[in-house]
Computed example of a mutant assay.
Amino acid sequence: MKIIEEAGAFQPGWAEHFRSADLSIGTYAIPAGATDPQTPHTEDEIYVITAGRGRLTTPSATVDVSPGTVIFVPAGEEHRFTGVTENLTALVIFGPAEYTRATPAAQ
């Protein structure tokens, strides 16, 4: 067992907290009004919104997000947070671990 105490604290950007071969978990935080620069990942991911408000936009849909929202984004799907009106914090779970499937140039 491992307690991941540092997960979920608002600190703008990405912070990985745990990694194994099968998954990784971290916190992704975006200040209100900021632009989300992320590009598609080579691994599946789950976002658990813990604080803030905004939207998650993909080519096929845009959904409002707030604390308690849980979203699955498949590997390779374009997505980004938009319209962040309150500092947004999400726990992010990658399966397998982030960059496991990436080529060295993509990291």
Rank of each mutant, 00 (worst) to 15 (best):
E16Y: 03
D36E: 12
T62L: 04
G68P: 07
I46K: 01
T58R: 00
F10M: 08
T58V: 10
P12E: 13
T103E: 15
Y28G: 05
I25S: 10
I3G: 01
V92A: 02
A51T: 03
T50R: 13
T35A: 14
A51M: 11
F10D: 04
E86R: 15
P67E: 12
V73M: 01
A102D: 11
V73A: 02
A21P: 04
Q11F: 07
A105H: 09
T82L: 05
D22H: 12
E16S: 10
A97S: 15
E78Y: 11
A90E: 04
Y99C: 01
P74N: 01
A21N: 12
H41P: 00
P59R: 04
A90V: 08
D22R: 15
E77A: 09
S66T: 05
I25E: 08
E6F: 01
P74M: 04
S24G: 12
R53I: 04
T103W: 03
S24K: 13
T27L: 13
V73Q: 00
E5F: 08
E43I: 01
Y99P: 01
T85K: 08
S24A: 09
H41M: 01
G8H: 07
T58G: 00
I49S: 09
P96Q: 10
H17V: 06
P40N: 02
S60G: 12
V63R: 13
G8V: 04
Q38W: 14
T82M: 05
R55G: 00
A9Y: 11
A102H: 06
F81A: 02
T57C: 12
G13I: 12
T85S: 15
F10Q: 09
T82F: 09
P12A: 10
D64F: 05
T69Q: 00
A34Q: 14
P12S: 08
T35R: 12
V92D: 03
P74R: 00
E43W: 01
P37H: 11
T62V: 13
P67D: 11
A105I: 05
I71G: 02
G8I: 04
P67I: 09
T42W: 01
A32L: 10
A102G: 08
T85I: 04
T62D: 08
S60W: 00
